[in-house]
Amino acid sequence: MDERRQRNRHATELQIEVFDVHSGQCLGRIVDLSMEGFMLLSELPLEADSVWECRLVPLTWVEGLEEIRLGADCLWTRTGEDTRKRWAGFHIIDIAEDQAIALEELLQFVRVG
């Protein structure tokens, strides 16, 4: 597989769920995360080449952080071994400066946690 990531993604034990801003529906749970994107495990039939406005919400308490808002493009999806679940890779395409700072702080927490 062609490796195009410029930064490493960080696997996390921290539970972070991703919600669609417009519907409020949970898209899935983050498996790994970087400043450029994330991979999640979902029970929804997400489609590649779809664009989402997302809220990343840590379910574990992280001081000073309730959510991070960003725009993301779903680049690919794959069915998991359990055919009810799907893996999906997202590229962050739009994030405000304050939200990028919050994401970097979350990544620092993930790296040490």
Rank of each mutant, 00 (worst) to 15 (best):
F90V: 14
G113H: 12
V112Y: 12
L65H: 10
T77Y: 12
E53M: 04
V112S: 14
I93P: 00
F109C: 05
E17Y: 01
R4A: 05
V18K: 00
R9D: 11
I93W: 14
W76N: 12
P45I: 00
D2R: 13
H10G: 13
R111H: 11
R7Y: 15
R55Y: 10
S42V: 07
D82R: 03
I92R: 00
T77F: 00
C74M: 13
M35N: 00
L27A: 15
A88R: 01
E66C: 03
D73C: 04
R29V: 01
A102F: 02
I93C: 14
P45K: 08
R84Y: 12
E104T: 12
L65T: 02
Q15K: 12
L75Y: 06
D94A: 15
W52F: 02
I16R: 07
I30G: 10
T79R: 15
I30L: 01
R4T: 07
E63F: 04
V21L: 01
V57H: 04
V21H: 07
V62M: 00
E43R: 06
I95Q: 07
G28T: 01
A48E: 07
W87P: 08
G37Q: 07
D98R: 06
N8W: 13
S50R: 12
A100G: 03
Q25R: 02
P45Y: 05
P58A: 03
A102R: 14
G71P: 06
R111S: 07
E63M: 12
F38E: 08
H22G: 00
E36T: 07
E104N: 12
G28A: 05
E36Y: 13
V51L: 12
Q15E: 02
S23I: 10
R86T: 11
D49W: 07
T60S: 06
L106D: 02
E63S: 13
G80H: 05
R7P: 01
E104I: 00
